[in-house]
């Protein structure tokens, strides 16, 4: 895969422990006591998202919209930008809410989010991306899978850029790492670099 040597991590974002970091630098941090609901509201205001649909989304989509908004701000990307996402608990958070609503009247606005790839649709709508999407479910962050699959999309010409990463939310705990992969940048798109960028908060 010689072509892969020309691929770079153009930008990366990490959201964990009430902290948002862009390329390893903390850009926003919140009080530890703040739960996801308040965090997602505060971040929306501070980052001036101005996207009323955000409030209708489930938590996983809010997390995806927030992180991709910051990641892609001022980046040149076209409609052929693919989304390669993964997590461990699929759409567990909203699945629980749907299960609760099943005891009374089921809410269609809840049910529609009970698939992990809906966030890919929401991001595609916001950023006008009409490209490849996939949602992988993995035990834990799997840099190799993200790397290998993103490379096949880029090297085969099926996508021009890729946003890949980890978008996990369970029991109000969230763990996000997304990166934009393109032909521009300084950090080579390698397994080691993905792991290093993801691992910052875990050390």
């Amino acid at each position: 895969m010689d072509k892969a040597r020309n691929l770079f991590i153009t930008n990366s974002i990490r959201i964990k422990n009430e902290k948002i970091s862009l390329k390893k630098e903390t850009i926003l941090s919140f009080d530890k006591e703040v739960g996801f609901s308040q965090f997602s509201k505060d971040a929306y205001k501070i980052l001036e998202l101005k996207y009323p649909k955000y409030h209708k989304m489930d938590s996983l989509c809010k997390l995806g919209i927030l992180s991709s908004h910051i990641l892609l701000l001022n980046q040149e990307i076209d409609a052929d930008t693919a989304l390669v996402f993964s997590n461990s608990s699929s759409s567990h958070d909203i699945d629980l809410k749907h299960k609760q609503s099943m005891e009374n009247i089921v809410s269609p606005a809840v049910f529609v989010y009970t698939l992990p790839n809906i966030v890919l649709g929401e991001i595609s709508i916001k950023h006008k991306l009409q490209s490849e999407n996939v949602f992988f479910v993995e035990d834990k962050f799997n840099a190799e899978l993200l790397l290998d699959y993103s490379e096949t999309l880029l090297n085969s010409g099926k996508a021009s850029n890729v946003v890949c990463g980890w978008l996990e939310l369970k029991n109000d705990q969230y763990d996000v790492f997304l990166c934009l992969v393109s032909k521009n940048g300084e950090i080579p798109f390698t397994k080691e670099n993905l792991e290093e960028l993801y691992g910052i908060e875990n050390e």
Partner: peptide, 9 residues
């Protein structure tokens, strides 16, 4: 090939 509508969920 796969492609998103980028229209509605």
């Amino acid at each position: 090939a796969s492609a998103n509508d980028a229209n509605h969920i």
